[in-house]
Design a protein around this nucleic acid. Structure first.
Lengths: 146, 146
DNA sequence: TTATATGCAAAAGCTTTGCATGGGT
DNA sequence: ACCCATGCAAAGCTTTTGCATATAA
């Protein structure tokens, strides 16, 4: 399990937020912990809100903005125009496959893809600050599975 | 110049729309022609509206939805959450570099990147229906330029 | 002639902001 | 004590929808 990874990001988040002069209220604490939960990928503000015992839309949006501004979360605007967030951890760097049938996102990593992106940036004379790759399609079901 | 490319897409668009039972009104015609103009990349509905002599928000959004549903345009949700459209032409396939300073998008193509994406899809067992790559950063200005 | 396109106005949804109150440090 | 966080309510924006009218085929 990557309990360790989760705690590392939580610690990092707390440290970064403190240094920025932010204080830990109930809403922020709950949001940060939710984002760090295992298997969480591309959560919307609404989804976070639904899972919070307490918390108002404004707290959620404000906290997410804060986290995004500090580089603690990634923000991805999906095809439906709704912003989705996930923790930004170098050790969990990944991209997403979106099933066009269900809309479900699946994370994946690929070394060759990363190298290709670095190469493009070099060729274009760009100092990279971030990159997103989204691939859309349908899972091929062959006889060997399900 | 790629006048030829433009006309090819325009013809294709008209044909596809007709086959879908759509009719060519003033608004749609203007929108389609604007999209096909040279150098147009990632236009917002608002930008289109501003450049239309006539046309209402509803016509613009409805036409863009129609074009998107028929696969005639790509829709990209930028970081600001506003949808941007550009014509979908296999011969103009490209991705985008977004300058984090100005927000300006610059199109680019890269063969190695395309191959990497195809390889990922194969590895994941995914039949690709589309993919987007966005790289964000800052242009490096060295002594040899500007 | 008949189904579709258009435009206006109203509504819907996500997100932001103002402000008074509560709470962290 | 001071300043930040929170929550409510209201506002802002982009986008969608209902409906009457105009228009393409």
């Amino acid at each position: 399990m990557d309990q360790t990874l989760r705690d590392r990001w939580l610690a990092e988040a707390d440290r970064t937020l403190s240094r920025a002069g932010r204080r830990a209220g109930a809403a922020r604490t709950a949001i940060v912990e939710l984002l760090a939960s295992d298997g969480q990928c591309l959560l919307t503000a609404q989804e976070l809100l639904d899972r919070l015992p307490h918390g108002s839309p404004s707290s959620v949006y404000r906290t997410l903005d804060e986290l995004f501004a500090l580089g603690l979360v990634h923000r991805l605007n999906a095809h439906d125009g709704v912003a989705r967030y996930e923790i930004a951890d170098p050790l969990r760097h990944h991209h997403h496959f979106i099933d066009v049938g269900t809309g479900t996102p699946t994370p994946f990593t690929d070394e060759a893809l990363e190298r290709a992106i670095q190469a493009v940036a070099r060729r274009l004379g760009v100092q990279l600050s971030g990159h997103d790759v989204v691939i859309r399609g349908r899972k091929i079901l062959d006889e060997t599975e399900s």
